[in-house]
Structure formats: structure tokens, C-alpha cells
Design a binder for these strands. Structure first.
Lengths: 389, 389
DNA sequence: TTGAAAGCGGTACCAA
DNA sequence: TTGGTACCGCTTTCAA
């Protein structure tokens, strides 16, 4: 018997359905392969996993059957039984997968994961604690090996209290509560698997994190503007409850102090949440006020704010007069006139570091929590070098 | 006995490990919950799945045990046995998750998936057939319910022939071949699960697809420029082997014809793969040539090309003279001077349509393949309305 | 070197 | 209403 034999445990009614009408056939299993190849299930397993010590003729029979049946291994079934329990999948919880910051980080995480044969589940929290919770539970329900997450700030909005039947991946709604209520899932770190947070650390500080030196780089930005003669530098920032926004503001204050400049509260605008907010605030700062109280330079604390500020400057025709340094690079910032000077975060490095840290944990690193800080880079392109006056 | 009883099948050595040292405990199972609650496994299953007809007191005992053990259902185990076999996960194969087009589409897919309790595996093919294949196999190995993919064009590069031990999710390297060689996996559609392709259809045309009306919108763009008096309109496009690039070029030709303009081959540049390529080509078109043969308007076939063209125009100081319409919107295109007129693709609509189509298939829609076409929008912002001369 | 049997964490089916 | 038992596709253990 040199060719394939339909030997083994007799005819296989399950697979026969394949030949019939357009009904999608059940995918072939190792058992099917074993039956067609006339070997045991275990032998198929050995061939699939490239185990040593399989007779060449048996192996080739199995390979042939695999081809014939279009068999593809079921990793979820295998991970269920395997000793290491790994699903070779990780979860990546971003604020918004479509945000350039997030997607650049995503890409870097993907690269590291790929080198480890791992796939990435990505999701957007929209800074909503309920969405964060829902996603986290769905990820854990699928037994991801680990998690990388932008933690949702504690004070974030929560429009409707607890959706009664949220469409979470897992049925049932009784899980994950450490005594019910709106407990923050992330900080509990009771998810039972390694996690690395990015962009901002958790208040508890007991979780691995990767952030940038927000404070120092903001201080440097102010120093940079001051070195070009600016003495009235405005700050435009996001919600102060957001850790990064708060840090950048502190850096601003430190920068003023270091340059011997006084803080003028009239030059500070917090809580800007959108491009429009920023545009309005910029117009206010520059338009209404008497000339003597106007800023000659702006420090914008986030990319959306930078965009709004640029828009306002252009509208007012002041883009060649008022200097600007923005935190976080903006795409095409080098096509504008003047080109926009920024503090660039290395999103790829952040993602790479986070992924490498996570995989180190998965490899058994049980050391104390690590707080990595990735450096930023001040890119002078023109807008930050406009002289005062 | 009103409180929880450690009844059932006696002591549970597995769970006892939890209390010991810092060793991460095995996650609690339904069996553990059953033992603690003093009920059968099946009753726990009923409670978890919110099945009707469970006595309230039993249910609350189970809930209490769930809380106590921090139990979280294992969806992968459940999907293995469940009749529908659904993993509630889909695969999204993009060219690059960090590309704005892709990530906007990703976000839209995520939203639809979320409404269905489904998570999204995202990956980047980089237009590399080997990466595409690797990702597809990894996705199938995890038994995603369906797939949404940017198909890698047939003629795409393939730097090194078949990596001998690619770190694919699945061990072994004998799968997916329809007879070995570099067979295109996507077009075979032998993955055994529903798939929707986006951006470009498959040559075979037998797979659901969502694209935009590349040809018509390009024709409209040319008509738009012609209506502003332009008679010498240049075309700058990507590789002609890419379907979208080819369609847009045809639209360009049709547009010229419709406006009664001759085709001047000297105004056509194909195979531009990067911002730099486009910048160089634009400089060539406008700089070297004698004035009479220079274009008064540019039609750029892709966002990277548009950026390169803008950069060149600015460098040459021609940005207020030479008109420009670009295919696909560019972020911040409205901050430039002049603001850039574009044919905007509705990436969110593409993603939404693709996801809805996919879920319709998952719901049992067995109709013939559908080829959806999403309309585009010509956004006049200034650069496309500069007059000729 | 090969295979039989148990079992991973759940669900389906049927009996009590 | 509740529980027992087989079993999903695969790996592990151990015997042949």
C-alpha cells in the first residue's frame, strides 16, 4: 500500500460533508488527517509540531494528508491543553487606534510581537472607563498572554452609568468587580496577566510603565523660546487631571523659573480639549488683550492644541510674528510656513520598549515594576526660532 | 449552612497554590467555582451564561464564589465546544496599521465589531506577500470568525524567497500551500472563512469587496481643473501594477478626453513610491522643461505623492501659481497656503461597510459576492481653484 | 518510534 | 430545576 489509505477508525461521516453542496465544511482536524494518513492522532501532532523521531515515510504520508484536507492547526485548542498555556496573542488598549500617536505605537508593538509569533488585539478606549473595562474583560476572556494599555485617567467622563447589557465579548456581567461599583480595573491589576502601561504611569506605581520625560522636555522648550528673546510665553494645555498635561505644565513653570521669567496667569490656558478649543483660546490670547500683555511665543501642550494654535495664528496673520513650540510632532508640520518646531516623542520607541518589557515578563522576569522613560527630541524647524519682537 | 461551602468533590489542590508565594495562580475555572459554591459545573455554566431557570439562592452562591475566586470565563475554551464555533474575533489585515488611511478604517471596523461583541486582530502586511501569508495563517490558526484585508498586489516585491523558519503563530511550515510555491493565499480563498477585501478588489472578483470610485472621481478632478482654465494638467501616480493607481490614471485619461484636452506623455509620471520620488518628479516637471511644455496644474494620485508635490511647489515658490488636486485627503491639508484641494475617501465608511458586509456573511448571508463602491468627495480648498496662467 | 488514554475549560444533550 | 456524561481539537503522559 504505497498511496494514501483511508485506514484507521473506518469511514468518517464528518468529513464526507465536504464534498456535498455549498455548505461550508467543518475545518479538517488532526483526527481527520490521522484517519486519511492511516496513523495515530499523536503521530500527526508530532509531524505538525516538527517533533523529532518520526519515521520519514509516516511523516510524508501525514504531510500529504494535510495538503489533501487543507488542514490548518487550531492554535486555540492547542493552547488550551499545552503546558505553557500561551495563546500567542496580546492585547493593546489604545485611546484611539486611529490617533497617529497610538497607531505609530501600535505598529512598533506589532513588530516586536511578530518576532515572537504573537498577534495583537487592538482596541480603543476613547478615554472612557467603561469602554476600557469592557475591552479589558473581553481581552482577558480570550486569555491574551499580556496587555499593553494607555490607562484611562481616573477622572474621565462616564456618560451613562453602567450599560445594563453591554455587548462585551464575554456573556454575563458579573465579573471583574472587586466588590462592585465602578472600581478601576487597571489599577487593580487583578487581571491575572502581565501588563505594561504607556504614556502615563498608574497612580499606584506598581505596574510596569513606559513614558516620556514630559517635564524636562517642556522645561527645555521654554528655555529654547527664552533663548530667542521671548519673555512672555503662553501655555496652552489639556485637562490638568491628565497626568501628561499636568507634567508639561510643571515643566513650563520650571522653565520660566530657570530663565528668570515671571509667571503671568493671563498667559495660561488649561482644559483645551479640541482643535477648536485651542483655536479660540489662541485668538483670545492674541486678539483681545492690550499689546503689552500679549504673548510673543506659545507653548502648546499637545498636537491637537498645536494645530488649533497654528490655525488661529494663520487666521490672525501672526504666524510669522508669534513663535511656537508644540509638544508632540504633527504630521506635515514641516510643510507649513513657518515650519513648526516641536518636541517630538518617539512613539515607535515607546511601543518597542513596552512590548519588550512585556515579553520579558512573559519570559519569566519577576523583578520589581520598572518605570521606563523614553527621551524626546526638540526639533527646531522655524516657528520656535522666530525672534521676540 | 448559609455560607459558602467547600463542598463538591472534596479539597482542591490546584487552587490551594493561590494562597502560597508570589507564584501566579492558575486562573479560576468553572470547576473551581462549582466546588466553592457547592453546586455542579453545569449550574455555574448556567449562571455565567445567564440561562433562565436557576434558583436564586444557587445563583447567588455561584456569584459569590465567582467574586471570591476572581473567576473570568474562558471564551476560547467555550468557543471550542459551542455549536456556533465563534471565537468572536476577526482579523484585519492592513498594509500598515500606522498609515492614516488604514488606521481610520481600523477604527470604523472596530466600532462595528464592538457592537457585536467581537475583538479585532490587526496586522500590517507592508504589501509583502510573505508577510500577508504569514499573518493570514496566524489568523486562521486562531480561528478568527472572518477577515478584512487589503490584498497585497500580485506583483509586489518579495525580497528574500521564503524565510526558512518564519516566526509564524503556528508551528510547522507545511500549511496553506495549494501545491507549494508562492501561491497567493488570498485569491485562493481557501481560508475557510468569510473575507472582505478593501481598497482594491481581487483579480478573480469572486470575493466581497469595498472600494471607492477611483476612476470617476479622478475624471471629476480633471474636469474641475479644466473648468478653471487648465489645459496642461500633469499626472503623478504610483506603480501602475497597483489597481487603484491604474484606475486613477484611466480616470485622468477619461477626464482629459471629456474636456477635449490632448494627452501629453511628458506630463505623466508613474511609479512614484515615496514622498521623495514625488518631490523629484514635480521638480523635474516644473523646473527643467521649457515654459511652454510645463503643466499649469497637477493631479497627484496618492497622499504621499501629494505631500511630495506640495514640498516641491513650495521649494520652487510655485505653490500659488500651479494648481493641485490630490487623491486622498492629507492631514492638515487645510493649514497649508494655499489649502490643498483633494478627493477625499471616506475611510470610515469603507471600514464600516466592509465590517457590515462581513458580519452579514457571519450571520449566514450566502448570496453571491458583492462589490461595494463607496463614493468620494471633491473638497475644493484653494489649491485646485488656482486659475491657469 | 508509535499509540492509547486522560484531560485542558468549557458546552450540549439527556436523565433525574 | 439540576446534574452526569460525552466531547470540542489538541497536548501530555505513559505504556507498548
Amino acid at each position: 500500500m504505497t498511496t494514501l489509505a483511508k485506514a484507521g477508525s473506518g469511514p468518517d461521516p464528518g468529513r464526507d460533508a465536504e464534498a456535498s453542496a455549498g455548505v461550508p465544511a467543518r475545518p479538517a482536524t488532526m483526527r481527520d488527517v490521522a484517519a486519511v494518513a492511516g496513523v495515530s492522532l499523536k503521530t500527526v501532532s508530532r509531524v505538525v509540531n516538527q517533533a523529532p523521531n518520526v519515521a520519514p515515510d509516516l511523516a510524508s504520508r501525514v504531510l500529504e494528508a494535510i495538503r489533501l484536507l487543507d488542514f490548518r492547526p487550531n492554535l486555540t485548542a492547542s493552547s488550551l491543553r499545552r503546558a505553557d498555556r500561551k495563546t500567542s496573542a496580546i492585547g493593546l488598549l489604545l485611546d484611539d487606534v486611529a490617533n497617529p500617536f497610538s497607531s505609530a505605537l501600535h505598529r512598533a508593538v506589532e513588530e516586536v510581537a511578530r518576532g515572537r509569533g504573537t498577534l495583537v488585539f487592538a482596541g480603543s478606549s476613547d478615554e472612557d472607563p467603561d469602554r476600557e473595562r469592557e475591552l479589558l474583560l473581553a481581552l482577558v476572556a480570550r486569555r491574551v498572554d499580556g496587555l499593553i494599555a494607555f490607562p484611562v485617567p481616573a477622572g474621565a467622563r462616564n456618560p451613562d452609568a453602567r450599560n445594563p447589557d453591554a455587548p462585551g465579548g464575554a456573556p454575563g456581567g458579573a465579573f471583574g468587580g472587586a466588590g462592585g461599583g465602578r472600581a478601576r480595573l487597571l489599577s487593580e491589576s487583578r487581571l491575572g496577566r502581565p501588563m505594561v502601561v504607556v504614556d502615563r504611569p498608574l497612580p499606584t506605581g506598581d505596574v510596569d510603565s513606559v513614558t516620556v520625560d514630559n517635564r524636562d522636555s517642556s522645561r527645555r522648550a521654554i528655555g529654547h523660546l527664552a533663548s530667542h528673546g521671548h519673555r512672555r510665553i503662553a501655555f496652552l494645555g489639556d485637562l490638568r487631571t491628565i497626568w501628561t498635561a499636568a507634567e508639561r505644565y510643571i515643566g513650563y513653570l520650571e522653565g520660566l523659573a530657570a530663565s528668570g521669567l515671571p509667571l503671568d496667569p493671563r498667559l495660561v490656558r488649561h482644559d483645551l480639549r479640541s482643535i477648536d478649543d485651542a483655536e479660540r483660546a489662541t485668538v483670545e490670547l492674541l486678539g483681545a488683550a492690550p499689546p503689552a500683555t500679549r504673548p510673543s511665543a506659545l507653548f502648546t501642550g499637545r498636537n491637537l492644541i498645536t494645530i488649533g494654535a497654528v490655525r488661529a495664528l494663520q487666521r490672525l496673520g501672526l504666524h510669522q510674528q508669534v513663535a511656537l513650540v508644540g509638544f508632540d510632532d504633527i504630521l506635515l508640520g514641516d510643510l507649513l510656513a513657518p515650519r513648526i518646531s516641536v518636541i517630538a516623542q518617539d512613539h515607535a520607541a515607546i511601543g518597542r520598549s513596552a512590548a519588550e518589557l512585556l515579553f520579558a515578563r512573559l519570559d519569566g522576569d519577576h523583578g520589581p515594576p520598572r518605570q521606563l522613560v523614553v527621551p524626546t527630541r526638540l526639533i527646531p524647524r522655524g516657528s520656535g526660532e522666530l525672534p521676540a519682537r
